[in-house]
Write a protein that binds this DNA or RNA. Structure first.
Length: 184
DNA sequence: AAGAAATTCAACCGCTTGGGT
DNA sequence: TACCCAAGCGGTTGAATTTCT
């Protein structure tokens, strides 16, 4: 049996109150992020650390954009999802001010539907309207069946043969921190 | 106006990962 | 190498809100 992430009794659950938000924000602005396990007690919150982290990351962070997704953002999500699959944190990392939770919700609520309406299977990018899509639009190699991208089996080069007209002009760059390291 | 159904999104749960020992 | 623990991640849930009948 797995240990609970924190002592369940004496911790609040459910929606956060304004006071709790304030306490958490104040504490993090003062002391910075980190050590989520001990944070609730230090900040005077009756929450588990996990809950605090989630609240901060998904809602309270000052750099969050919030509000509706722009068309360019949706476009990018669709492209990145085609490339990365359900790796929401990676996708969100390329959308400044957006969280993985937000991206995931937006995908499940809006973009899946949008792609379906366009006749595209959101899960594997197959055309729902034309079963011959892969043959007529993709490579001549009929043996390369259209498969969702699998990072475990991918070997560097990513095939776009399964993707209908998504204009995948993406390049993968290492995160900024790596780039900085490389420069030094 | 009221109730039902659908939609949205914040939050939780449990598994995985990565660092330390 | 094996184990432990904290943090991170993605899937799922459920309450609140909106839309429909």
């Amino acid at each position: 049996m797995r240990k609970p992430c924190c002592e369940k009794k004496d911790t609040n659950k459910g929606a956060w109150s304004k006071l709790e938000d304030q306490k958490l924000t104040d504490y993090i602005l003062k002391h910075g992020e980190g050590c989520w396990r001990s944070l609730p007690q230090a900040a005077g919150l009756l929450r588990c650390g996990k809950s605090c982290r989630l609240r901060w990351v998904n809602y309270l962070r000052p750099d969050l954009k919030r509000g509706n997704f722009g068309e360019d953002e949706e476009d990018l999500i669709i492209k990145l999802h085609a490339l990365l699959g359900n790796r929401w944190s990676l996708i969100a990392g390329r959308l400044p001010g957006r969280t993985d939770n937000e991206v995931k919700n937006h995908w499940n609520i809006h973009l899946k539907k949008k792609l379906s309406m366009m006749g595209i299977d959101p899960d594997n990018r197959r055309s729902l309207l034309s079963p011959t899509f892969t043959k007529s639009n993709a490579s001549n190699d009929s043996s390369s069946a259209c498969q969702p991208f699998n990072p475990a089996t991918a070997s560097g080069a990513i095939s776009s043969t399964c993707l209908p007209d998504l204009n995948l002009d993406l390049t993968i760059a290492p995160p900024l921190s790596y780039q900085n390291l490389a420069l030094n």
